[in-house]
Design a protein around this nucleic acid. Structure first.
Lengths: 193, 193
DNA sequence: TCACGCATGTAAGAGGTTACATGATTAG
DNA sequence: CTAATCATGTAACCTCTTACATGCGTGA
């Protein structure tokens, strides 16, 4: 009977607009980037669970040139549950970041390949940052919505700031690691070629 | 035959020093905060898997006043594997943060309880930040190690910067959300008491 | 012709959490 | 007297990923 975190994620997207499972999956991997990238194999079963719990309904649409689809809509019960859940306490997120473990082993590896690894991740997060900055520009084009706390755009802007901050901070850290490795290489003995 | 992420996490801790499973579990939930908080029920089986793979060995220690224990030590094979793994490419982490989903639903809830939620998380991350800053002061007390790229302290300092940045950024975001809700409340009609 | 977008799903397995079991010592 | 610390583990369960299955239309 309980709703999973993914279930709430889907509900919160459906609270704004009706979508198919496919749409929801694409949304979760778009640069508009809400939340994280869930697989279709998890989304579809989750949607039918939400449906059996009466939190969403769907309308089957028959198509000729494309596969048939189900457009899901949140119910009043779903909306009510989401509103209650939204302000209830949560535990802070658990971050399982493999790069951090690798960083912890840097003392036992050659600095050059380590730098390469961190340069790659710096670039990755800078690219993500740019994508989010584009979305930011789009949102800031309609400032009325950003000041209306009852507008979904307002909430989207809030989570966008989180994404921006996260990517910026991560890129800065990667850059700092590369610099630190550079610096320490000058102090240690040069490699034997 | 493959080693899991937790397996590498344990190996990277054992590369510095020998520990019991219990020690490793405590380390992972200490403010010295390496990585994330793994459960003992996951650590113990993982250690025996690493042992069966020849990546660690253990020495059984019989105790009178406390339960017997096993002190695990990394093997040469384990060390070699860890060094290779440490600079191999990784995917960026997937962040599944329930608070971000809740934030996405803020447009449909009362601002007051929402502020309370974000104030709580701001305090949480500020407290974490302080803990990390204490560790930072401890590490900076011995600056020679911080400039030696072959010292585990060097690597610990690197991941500490990540933790510091993460907590700082998260706290700033929470604060910003609270302020934004404050601001918008002044624009909307006052609640009917 | 081949891959991509549309669209929904099942099955198997890996990873992680919660609950349970045991038992002595020590601090409040 | 109760809770915490030390210390290792098993069993059941939930969550998430990977692989598989199907099939039409369109653009390169």
């Amino acid at each position: 009977m309980a709703v999973t975190t993914l279930g709430y994620a889907l509900l919160s997207l459906l609270a704004v607009k009706s979508y198919t499972g496919y749409d929801l999956g694409r949304l979760m991997r778009s640069p508009i980037s809400v939340f994280w990238e869930a697989r279709y194999s998890q989304i579809y079963p989750e949607l039918s669970r939400l449906e059996s719990q009466g939190l969403v309904t769907y309308q089957a649409v028959t198509q000729h040139d494309f596969p048939d689809k189900k457009i899901y809509t949140i119910t009043d019960d779903g909306r009510a549950l989401l509103r209650i859940w939204a302000t209830e306490p949560v535990d802070p997120p658990v971050i399982r970041d493999e790069l951090v473990i690798k960083a912890y082993s840097l003392w036992m590896v050659d600095p050059e390949p380590a730098q390469e690894l961190f340069r790659y991740h710096e670039q990755y997060h800078l690219a993500k940052l740019q994508q989010y900055e584009e979305v930011q520009r789009d949102l800031e084009a309609s400032p009325e919505a950003l000041n209306d706390p009852t507008s979904p755009t307002f909430a989207q802007y809030i989570i966008l700031q989180r994404d921006l901050g996260f990517e910026r901070e991560y890129a800065v850290w990667c850059h700092w690691v590369v610099e630190r490795l550079e610096q320490t290489m000058r102090f240690s003995s040069p490699p034997i070629n």
